[in-house]
């Protein structure tokens, strides 16, 4: 119960911090915001001083900062995220539209990473120092060391350009999912394979693992009955932290593959100083982090009765 309350407080703090921070950041960016917004609305070629002034007057960009901030946070409390400065559509509608695309991409990526990473990690952890363990260490360190946009480009060059197996970009069909989700999944799997490997190696060294074998269980039965559940606890805990990596990855990967999701929208909103959109997307991502971690807390409490005590 107290865990849920603390997560609610956390969500509130996240909302206030993101609201204030995005506001301050957007105000302090160099350049005339009115010009950029006008350019976003009408196109760079059609902007003149009159259009910029019209935007300035409409949005009250000249007013004192603290008043604007209070109004800003007040709107947040009423769950009113305002309209996009560029399209004029309500931010909520825009985000709802993009969030679906991002969430499905992220979900596929997480599932894919769980198919790749933990099984390899568990196999490596059962034979620490073995060939698979060493190969996995090198591979996962290598993948983690390469920036994600480069991984994306390498995959595009090999699988889309050279082999012509998959589309390089696009959205709509199932095959469009493969490259962007694989890019994200490799980055996630590189880490959760290590987590699974370390957890497995630690568990296989514990007295209860040996005891399970002495009881007469086979290697396979020991793994299924006493290994997986115990490995899943640190793995799921870490999944909550990986959400941060996932958000970073989504922003980059969506831009590279032209995926019409929330990350893509965030980048565009920043370019065109669409402050309500920036805030809305950042808020959704921040609250998503709290929500995911709350769900993980509950899952861990269910899996590991010791944490409930």
């Amino acid at each position: 119960m107290s865990a849920i309350v603390s997560r609610l407080v956390q969500a509130l703090m996240v909302a206030i911090l993101i609201g204030t921070a995005t506001f301050v950041m957007m105000r302090s960016l160099p350049g005339d915001a009115a010009w950029r917004i006008a350019a976003g609305r009408y196109g760079y070629d059609n902007v003149d001083a009159a259009a910029a002034d019209a935007v300035r007057a409409e949005l009250g960009l000249d007013g004192p900062a603290h008043m604007a901030l209070l109004q800003w946070l007040g709107d947040l409390v009423r769950l009113d995220f305002g309209n996009s400065l560029v399209t004029g559509q309500p931010v909520v509608d825009e985000i709802a539209h993009q969030l679906g695309a991002s969430a499905s991409l992220a979900l596929v990526a997480v599932l894919l990473s769980l198919v790749i990473g933990p099984p390899l990690g568990i196999l490596a952890g059962l034979r620490p120092g073995g060939r698979l363990d060493r190969a996995l260490l090198v591979t996962s360190t290598g993948i983690k060391a390469v920036p994600q946009f480069l991984v994306a480009l390498v995959l595009i060059v090999i699988l889309a350009v050279q082999l012509r197996w998959l589309p390089a970009a696009g959205h709509g069909a199932a095959r469009h999912f493969i490259l962007p989700s694989l890019t994200l999944a490799l980055g996630l799997a590189a880490v959760n394979a290590r987590i699974a490997r370390d957890a497995m190696a630690r568990i296989a060294d514990m007295p209860f693992w040996r005891f399970a074998q002495w009881k007469g269980l086979s290697e396979r039965q020991t793994l299924l009955r006493h290994g997986l559940r115990n490995v899943s606890v640190p793995l799921i805990t870490y999944l909550g932290l990986q959400f941060v990596t996932l958000v970073e990855g989504v922003i980059i990967v969506e831009s590279v593959f032209g995926w019409p999701g929330i990350g893509h929208a965030l980048v565009h909103a920043i370019f065109s100083r669409d402050v309500p959109m920036v805030q809305g997307t950042a808020l959704v991502l921040g609250l998503g982090f709290v929500l995911v971690n709350a769900a993980i807390d509950l899952a861990i409490r269910h899996l590991d009765p010791r944490t409930a005590a």
Binding site: P207, F208, R210, F211, R225, N230, L303, R306
Partner: peptide, 12 residues
């Protein structure tokens, strides 16, 4: 086993 407490699976 020497240490029965550690020899039982903590999650079962």
């Amino acid at each position: 086993p020497q240490e029965p407490w550690l020899s039982l699976d903590p999650l079962m």
